[in-house]
Write a protein that binds this DNA or RNA. Structure first.
Lengths: 246, 246
DNA sequence: CGCGATTTGTGCACGTCTTCACAAGCGCCT
DNA sequence: AGGCGCTTGTGAAGACGTGCACAAATCGCG
């Protein structure tokens, strides 16, 4: 609570804001903690216990403590965690202190929605450009942004550093788009197309497939219906819901 | 190839289509295998090796074999897997042989897109009803479906068994909607709202938070930028991209 | 000033998932 | 018919993630 300098996690004197080597599972949960923390802050809390925060984030309190301990000691024994301090710390680790530019490729059904999705802007992401290959959509204005042809991507990337590329095209076009994004220097891609992308080792790809989620639910539904007996069968806990990233 | 009866996985004579106890990680990958298999079938392949299928699905071949072995022995040593047979088998296990009705709540930006998402229909899911609470949207016709008020949910559920409920509302409304879905008998929920839902133990909830995916990418981007040295640093493999469900 | 209530941080054990490596089985060719 | 190459299925080991349980630390109060 006394020293407020962020990033003094692993360095001996905290001089270098060296990022600790976080387990992937922890990274996937940090955004959830962050959301819960913001909720706490809006509700007026100044400190939260691991128990309280864990409940708000839908996880085990021990897991939450272990996750946060990887960032360093930002809690006070007997009191809890300083909400504002922890928000700063997590935002720093996640790299949210700098606003990141997002380019969205494919303004079909899904792309349209993503272009105007409030959740992006409110978390520090800024959609700076929309692209498509269909001439019919070029020039269309969506949520204040004009759709450009995909071939203009290098030009746009040259003047604005694109941190993340979002692919919302049909599967058939996704690989070509990914190649163009990589060529333009993009090293992080969020792929909504139902296909596997081949990218260089230094490029990170995360995939979101809405149909897959439904199929997983379908499996459990199928199981429930075939195992009509034993009502105490294993299922998701009261507040325990499987996160997407796990 | 001789016996085609699906579900003869664990029962002694295959009489009961008892579902094997699949590891959750395996279940999350089956849809991806299914998609790859459909792609193989369309390309004309009759059989695939684990190596080939693994490459198409973006996973390790050993992992794929172990996953499939949980379903039973549907491969032929020295040859590979019969594509059509494996498709049938996975679709059966995932419960995709029966068309499942999906109800979508919240026809805002995202809900609009989901209502018309082709990927749902092509995988055997059928959006049968749209709901919202905003009077301005009631009656609107989206992709051939009329938006009804959320209070009509019980009536709709009474005449059409809803297998899966999709929540695409703002976070503030999500819990109330979830309660209404549960009350209407829905036992599987796909939640796009950025919040934790409390549901009874027999209800499965899967959460998809688009902003979280961006934040995870942001973390890796942040790491890459701070660790500008050591170009051989750990990153995603050439075709190894972190699946969402993992 | 000391004590008890409270909460963090973490060592340890357990379960799950992944990966390697190889035996078993299958088809094809000679 | 026999052998050879190829591929599946699986045992075992290692890596990873989870949860318990408790020591260490801090605050408040008498």
């Amino acid at each position: 609570m006394s020293q407020h300098r962020p990033g003094s996690t692993s360095g001996p004197a905290g001089a270098v804001p060296a990022l600790p080597d976080l387990p992937e599972a922890t990274v996937a949960r940090l955004p959830e903690y962050l959301r819960a923390l913001h909720h706490c802050a809006e509700t007026g809390y100044e400190t939260v216990s691991s128990e309280g925060l864990a409940a708000a984030a839908g996880v085990n309190s021990a897991k939450l403590r272990k996750d946060l301990s990887h960032l360093g000691s930002y809690g006070t024994r007997g009191v809890g965690y300083d909400v504002a301090l922890l928000i700063d710390q997590i935002e720093y680790v996640l790299g949210l202190t700098q606003r990141r530019a997002v380019a969205l490729v494919g303004v079909g059904n899904l792309g349209h929605a993503l272009a105007g999705y409030d959740g992006f802007a409110s978390r520090g992401f800024h959609v700076v450009a929309l692209f498509d290959a269909d001439p019919a959509t070029i020039g269309e204005r969506i949520h204040g942004l004009q759709v450009r042809h995909i071939d203009e991507l290098p030009a746009v990337a040259a003047e604005t550093a694109i941190a993340i590329g979002v692919i919302a095209t049909p599967a058939a076009a996704a690989q070509a788009v990914a190649d163009q994004l990589v060529a333009a220097g993009v090293t992080s891609i969020l792929n909504f197309a139902p296909c596997v992308l081949s990218v260089p080792p230094n490029v990170d790809v995360r995939k979101v497939d809405l149909a897959i989620e439904l199929q997983i639910l379908s499996f459990h539904e199928h199981r429930k219906s075939t195992l009509t007996a034993l009502p105490g069968g294993r299922a998701a806990g009261t507040s325990g819901q499987e996160a997407v990233g796990s």
